[in-house]
Design a protein around this nucleic acid. Structure first.
Length: 282
DNA sequence: CTGGGGACGGGGCCC
DNA sequence: CGGGCCCCGTCCCCA
């Protein structure tokens, strides 16, 4: 599966208003009622806001903020889900643990596997009290999410793995570096001095600058053409290849690029079926 | 409608 | 952990 197919596009096919996004309050601790932010992602999956008094931490050198997971990929879609929705901090659950340990125990309830955790079932104990009777059924209390999740039989990854979400969109990453890289696509820190166009990464800016300078460092070995972009050279090389990678399942016509095949399909040759994808071995 | 070029996006990998 | 680069892709435009 091509990686880019996994990338969500902006529905409007337009870039978000980064100025507005940047100007928003990034890291404040939410204090509104948890129920006001409750939202449903799945018939059996509900995302809950962070306990409003629990977590706050400086972002440090991050480009922008992120928050704890709205959902975790290792959590079965039909299973119970415990998550946060607020742009709080880049803290994984195991990092939350010591923070929570200084706060209050969490309660849980015994319930059917399909039953969703609710705010009332996951609520902090009475402030300042050494409560050990957090569980509504077994009277156990849990000072950490880890302990609570073990009691709830949540997946190990959910208990242990770092997990970061972009505050600008729905994307989630298991590494902070990956998230910071992604956030650059929102903040666009690399600006062309010649035209002011902004890019997410320096090498994208370099490629753009070639459009100003006319530099074309990527030459075709089969003809005299040269390109400023390696990907464009690769696409060009397909024009020299006798083997077209993309074949229409209906008429067996072959194309050098999948975009051409897509156009062919959209034109009405075989609209009801995806065509063969003949991956070359070169 | 097709073929191809130009510009660019984004995740992963490597150092 | 960050930067550079690679790979795979899309979108737009034009002949």
């Amino acid at each position: 599966m091509p990686r880019s197919f996994l990338v969500k596009k902006h529905l409007s096919n337009k870039k978000p208003d980064y100025a507005v996004l940047q100007d928003s309050k990034k890291y404040e601790v939410m204090t509104e009622s948890p129920s006001s932010k409750l939202r449903t992602l799945h018939p059996h999956q509900t995302v809950f806001p962070a306990p409003h008094h629990v977590i706050s931490a400086p972002i440090g050198s991050l480009d922008s903020g992120m928050y704890l997971p709205p959902q975790h990929p290792s959590v079965p879609m039909d299973g119970p889900v415990l998550a946060f929705t607020y742009p709080v901090t880049p803290i994984a659950l195991r990092d939350v643990q010591p923070v929570l340990s200084t706060l209050e125990p969490f309660q849980h309830s015994h319930s059917d596997p399909d039953e969703k955790l609710t705010v009332s079932q996951l609520q902090p104990g009475t402030s300042g009290q050494e409560r050990r009777d957090g569980c509504l059924d077994c009277q156990k209390s849990y000072f950490t999410f880890s302990s609570l999740s073990k009691q709830r039989n949540l997946p190990c990854e959910w208990q242990c793995q770092k997990y970061f979400s972009c505050k600008y969109c729905d994307k989630e990453y298991v590494s902070l570096g990956a998230l910071k890289m992604h956030i650059r696509t929102h903040t666009l820190p690399c600006v062309c001095k010649l035209c002011g166009k902004a890019f997410s990464r320096p090498w994208l800016l370099q490629g753009h600058i070639r459009t100003h300078t006319g530099e074309k460092p990527f030459s075709c070995p089969h003809c005299t053409r040269a390109f400023a972009d390696r990907s464009n050279l690769r696409a060009h090389l397909q024009t020299h290849s006798e083997i077209k990678k993309y074949q229409c399942r209906s008429c067996l016509k072959t194309f050098s690029r999948i975009s051409l095949l897509s156009k062919h399909e959209e034109a009405g040759c075989c609209p009801m079926s995806r065509s063969l994808y003949c991956q070359s071995q070169d």
